[in-house]
Nucleic acid binder design. Structure first.
Lengths: 201, 201
DNA sequence: ACTGTAAGAGAACAGATTGAAAACATATTT
DNA sequence: AAATATGTTTTCAATCTGTTCTCTTACAGT
């Protein structure tokens, strides 16, 4: 069923996913041509048709309601709940495929998932035991971001990262603990903290 | 069931949602024509009919009560964003009717709304400046719950409550501040904290 | 070089959508 | 009852927008 997309088709699809906010209405072929720098909607139509065949775009049978993706990506509003994270231990995965409702503004366009926090290692960042955090899956991070990092391939931690030439420093937010310095190879970034939720009942 | 709207229909619907405040009575077809720059109510009627079929607008069978939306839009997963709360000040209300997506597990069955936190008065409870809190509207609370309280009829605060015989004590979580003791009449409970959310981007 | 595929331009077409106008029907007011 | 206001229906023309075609160019690979 899932046809293989050509490079250009993939490009157009990515563009649609990225910029679906741009158009507050689904774009027409002409609008998309303009946005993509094409000058013939006939050409674009052929590409879109391929995306329709691939099941990625709603078919529009002569209707004029613009191009819309079949599933507004991240549609179900639910992200996978991957498991528990406790400082200094491997991430404890959950076996059954749990999912969790997450508001749009707590996540990014990227690939996100949810972890539950165990322990108080981030208490000074306002992240408490039992909080749910939303993590964007990424291999790299900017200095100052809070990352889920794997140290020495097994210990997971949630810390603010500082990457220098030849060293990676992880700053815990809890003042009882000290910053730890590692060689870059020791620290593997698994994701970046983008949101947090807490229930009081 | 949810029919797919044409672009114009979307536009009109969006307009209705946006400007429902404008008309303090639901607008008549003629008024809407004027507002939308149309000169024929017959044309508009056809569009509205489509919205009625889509279940977005109340059908009006020859009644003349104007056009009204079926559901105060965003009724499902969204709660009203009421304004800002900063310790020691009145709650700063927001004028336009903003709504915010809130996962089911961050709220209760009761009547809930969202506030944005200003300031660090709850920093030790893990509630930071800029966090969104979910509050259940209630007049009473149990000891130990965190409440939105109105002190002396004007100052709002977010504090852990302790109710004794003849006295109400509000415990701030920030150790720099001290618990305050009030007479029961002075403290009016406006709601109870049930959830909290934070975005890192 | 030859061939096949992907990509794009442009023209022309078909039918969906929109809007104006007028006539009609029903409710509300005078 | 008459007048007015408002919703409903119909007809028609103009325009917009998806669709189909043909032709051209570029590139990759036996």
């Amino acid at each position: 069923m899932s046809y293989r997309l050509t490079r250009r088709q993939q490009e157009i699809y990515d563009y649609l996913v990225e910029n679906q906010e741009e158009f507050h209405h689904p774009p027409t072929l002409d609008e998309l041509c303009l946005a993509l720098g094409l000058s013939s909607k006939g050409s674009l139509h052929k590409q879109i048709q391929a995306l329709i065949n691939a099941g990625l775009v709603d078919p529009m049978n002569n209707q004029r309601r613009g191009i819309r993706l079949t599933q507004p990506p991240g549609a179900e509003g639910e992200l996978p709940m991957m498991g528990y994270i406790a400082a200094g231990q491997p991430i404890e995965a959950i076996d059954h495929n749990e999912r969790m409702e997450v508001p749009a503004f707590l996540r990014t366009g990227g690939d996100c998932y949810v972890l539950e926090v165990r322990g108080d290692s981030m208490i000074d960042e306002g992240i408490l035991d039992g909080d749910r955090i939303v993590v964007e899956h990424r291999e790299t991070a900017c200095n100052g971001e809070i990352v889920v990092a794997l140290v020495d391939g097994c210990e997971a931690t949630l810390k603010r990262i500082e990457q220098k030439r030849g060293a990676v420093i992880l700053h815990p937010a809890n003042p009882n603990m000290k910053p730890m310095k590692y060689r870059p190879g020791q620290v593997q970034i698994q994701g970046v903290l983008v949101g947090q939720m807490r229930s009081y009942h």
